[in-house]
Design a protein around this nucleic acid. Structure first.
Length: 784
DNA sequence: AGTACTGACTTTTTT
DNA sequence: AGTCAGTACT
């Protein structure tokens, strides 16, 4: 999307009224593809440009870091264009490149850098770097500003350690994963360990309550927070400290939230506190020079598993509105025109979502004509399904060289499904798997990050334990156990014990020496944390710790690839330093745990994207393959018996369908093998039956040979639009189209009445048609 | 005391 | 692909 300086003329009336809204609350109900990002972007620019709002008074919450970055780039462009007009009275594009760059960088410094724009987690992590030292929880636990952020796997291993080591419980009965999940749910409802304990009726619940309490203690000991704390702690801090809330309330006069339907109670609390300064009484709220602007679509709410609740969106007007009779028009705008998808794709999406009971009525109105019929493919198994996807991509691309690899997306319900797809694509099609096994989940990357964390935050025992004997340096389990026991007895962090000569001397000579050496290496680099750049420290600690040389000595292919991944990490460090003008290690680490794979998905990248439906939210592609439409997989087994969960799966399917601009392929398999089990027979997803059958063509009913349908190989007479009805189409056939002129068939899909054609028009590219409806006729049969 | 190897197990979705 | 428990070897 371009971001022209005269953006208002590019908006429809509803979008425009949203952009021009200044003070007070506004809910923008924005259906898929309705220009939501555009509206949000222009509104931020508009606030600054037309209402003279200082960028540092704006807080904009996006769903991914990538979305934030893209929005920042667009706003930057708008202001660079404005600066060009003001300074040179010429459009930006007409200036010498050097000037353009200079103006862009001026726009960045003045308008983008002071903006607070990002995910809930990254924004409030940033806020905590200022104020967390003023926070005390109900048990007087406290944190320092250099806290570490534990990702989900760090958090889980901490829980596991507590369950097995501290509580000596059976890991099978108290599965760390589900306990961590229970803790997370409690946190996302805003419940402390004490709140949680109070609600428990049974033994298991009370034990989990104690684990939760111990978990918080351990987090505090490690000066660490998990993802949920990044939201819960600021909410608590705001509630216990009026002056801190007052400061941020005053700072963030204009709050914008994207994807509001996927907000959870804690996130809502944060937004509410910041907007109203914690005033419980509506008559004390003042919207003078303030606004709260949220954008969302209840039909695309797909994160209830992490406690998101789309009722928060439905209740927005009641929450923030002034309750006046004309409430609807004053505090809500609906964007219902869809600019993205072909009308038939939209029709399918609308029909599906209407089966949900819990929703506000809203239809997406198409602005684009009908495209190729949605095709549904039944495969024998997941390998054949993958081959189908591969072959269609190759066909379509051959038919239209202008379709690049980046035009295709493959969407699935679970990450596990990517395996078979990868095998089929690998040799012939460039692809990227978004999400799944993330870069930051690689062993060597986690090791390297643990080294860095141990330098920035020596209290972080979890990281310290990860690297204390990685690579092997003669500090075995027995030694580690002793050190940890000593730390507990002395009531000090492990790190102090490692540095303490008298403690270390009690160990066997060889182990003592190894521990001493390790401690010395860390100390050396700790003293450099504020002296040197993150890149230098990373290289230094991995060299001095022997991590590099250990991998080099192994000399295996695997070790080589690990070294390459570390090089990539080094690049990420440098890139971060450049983009954020921040060379510090602390700066880099603060962001590393919050970065997701999706953030690296660049537009126009020359690769097919494969990802889960959840990851696909907010994205769009000309051609979309929605695979694995089988009962039990999608909708997932765990959702089938629960009406609310089933509706969420249906919304997920709706999200998938509405990602497609031009063409949509659906597929399922007759049997599927998941994680090495025997093949399981599969039934097609109920969602397939829920789509209007007249919008679909498929291979489900076995088709007879083409010859037999040729009996009606005569153009239907009389109708304007059906002059090219059922015929035996071949690649190379020539046609004349009523509006597009002469063209050549480059692709034939399906047979008989279900044929879809790709036709190339010189100078106009390739279009996809259903010959039953396209206003065109065949002029000459192909030579063969 | 430390290391090296094997086999079992893991996946619903994510910041 | 990684982690972890178990086991045998140095």
């Amino acid at each position: 999307m371009k971001a022209p300086a005269d953006y208002l003329s590019h908006l429809n009336p509803a979008q425009r009224s949203a952009v021009e809204h200044f003070c007070g609350p506004l809910l923008v109900v924005a259906g898929a593809g309705s220009g939501k990002t555009r509206t949000l972007t222009y509104r931020v620019a508009h606030l600054i440009r037309n209402h003279s709002v200082d960028p540092e008074n704006i807080l904009a919450v996006t769903f991914t870091n990538k979305a934030a970055r893209e929005m920042q780039e667009r706003i930057q462009l708008i202001f660079a264009q404005q600066l060009a007009e003001q300074t040179y009275s010429h459009p930006l594009e007409s200036l010498p490149l050097q000037e353009q760059t200079a103006l862009r960088s001026r726009a960045y410094k003045r308008y983008i850098k002071p903006l607070w724009m990002g995910t809930f987690h990254s924004l409030f992590a940033r806020l905590l770097r200022f104020d967390i030292d003023k926070y005390r929880d109900e048990k007087e636990r406290k944190w320092e500003r250099n806290f570490t952020i534990y990702d989900e796997s760090d958090a889980q291993s901490l829980v596991k350690n507590i369950v097995t080591r501290q509580f000596d419980l059976d890991e099978k009965k108290f599965d760390p994963r589900s306990i961590r999940y229970a803790i997370g749910n409690a946190k996302n409802l805003g419940h402390s360990p004490q709140d949680f304990a109070r609600e428990q009726q049974n033994y298991r619940g009370r034990v989990i309550g104690e684990i939760y309490d111990a978990y918080q203690t351990r987090l505090a000991e490690n000066n660490a927070l998990d993802f949920d704390d990044l939201l819960l702690v600021p909410a608590r801090l705001f509630e216990q400290n009026e002056s801190i809330l007052g400061y941020w309330h005053d700072r963030f006069r204009h709050v914008l939230v994207d994807e509001y339907q996927d907000t959870n109670r804690i996130q809502y609390r944060l937004i509410r506190l910041l907007s109203t300064n914690g005033e419980p009484h509506r008559d004390r709220w003042s919207w003078q020079q303030r606004s709260i602007f949220v954008v969302g679509d209840a039909d695309q709410s797909i994160y209830s598993f992490r406690m998101a609740d789309f009722k928060i969106l439905l209740e927005f007007q009641e929450d923030f509105g002034d309750g006046l009779p004309d409430d609807d028009t004053r505090t809500m705008v609906k964007l219902e025109e869809n600019y993205r998808s072909r009308s038939n794709i939209l029709e399918a999406a609308n029909a599906l979502i209407e089966l949900n009971t819990e929703r506000i009525d809203k239809v997406l109105r198409p602005t684009r004509g009908c495209g190729a019929t949605i095709y549904c493919y039944k495969a024998d198994n997941e390998l054949v399904e993958a081959q189908f996807v591969r072959d269609r991509i190759l066909d379509l691309r051959r038919a239209d060289p202008e379709l690049d690899w980046g035009s295709f997306a493959i969407l699935y319900r679970t990450n596990a499904q990517s395996r078979a797809l990868e095998d089929a694509l690998r040799s012939e099609i460039p692809y990227i798997i978004v999400g799944g096994l993330k870069f930051y989940d690689r062993k060597e990357v986690k090791d390297a990050l643990a080294y860095l964390r141990a330098l920035v935050n020596p209290a972080d025992t979890v990281s310290l334990l990860r690297i204390i004997n990685t690579p092997r340096r003669g500090i075995g389990q027995a030694t580690v156990d002793r050190l940890v026991a000593a730390a507990r007895e002395l009531g000090m962090p492990l790190w102090h014990v490692l540095q303490d000569e008298t403690s270390v001397k009690t160990l066997a000579g060889r182990s003592a020496k190894a521990v001493q050496r390790f401690a010395l290496t860390l100390q050396t680099w700790q003293s450099q944390v504020t002296e040197r750049s993150a890149a230098e420290i990373l290289d230094g600690i991995l060299s001095d710790s022997g991590y590099y040389s250990d991998l080099q000595n192994q000399g295996t292919d695997e070790a080589t690839s690990r070294l390459e991944n570390l090089k990539e990490l080094a690049n990420a460090v440098i890139q971060f330093a450049e983009e954020n003008e921040d060379l510090s290690l602390e700066g880099f680490l603060a962001n590393a745990s919050l970065a997701s794979d999706l953030d690296n998905l660049e537009e126009g990248q020359q690769a097919v994207s494969a990802m889960t439906l959840h990851s696909a939210k907010g994205l769009e592609f000309p051609v979309v393959f929605l695979v694995g439409l089988e009962q039990g997989l999608f909708p997932h087994n765990r959702a089938i018996d629960d009406p609310a969960a089933l509706e969420e799966e249906r919304r997920l399917c709706y999200v998938g369908i509405t990602r497609a601009r031009e063409q949509l392929f659906l597929s399922f398999t007759r049997e599927r093998r998941l994680w090495g089990m025997a093949r399981e027979p599969a039934l097609q997803s109920q969602f397939l039956q829920e789509l209007p059958s007249e919008l679909l063509e498929s291979n489900i009913v076995p088709q007879r040979l083409p010859r037999k349908s040729v009996e009606r190989d005569r153009p239907t007479v009389g109708t304007v639009s059906a002059t090219a009805a059922i015929q035996n189409w071949q690649i190379g056939d020539r046609v004349i189209h009523q509006t597009l002129g002469p063209g050549e068939v480059t692709l034939v899909m399906g047979e008989g009445a279900k044929t879809t054609l790709g036709i190339k028009f010189p100078g106009l590219g390739t279009k996809i048609f259903d010959p039953k409806f396209a206003p065109m006729r065949r002029v000459e049969a192909s030579a063969n």
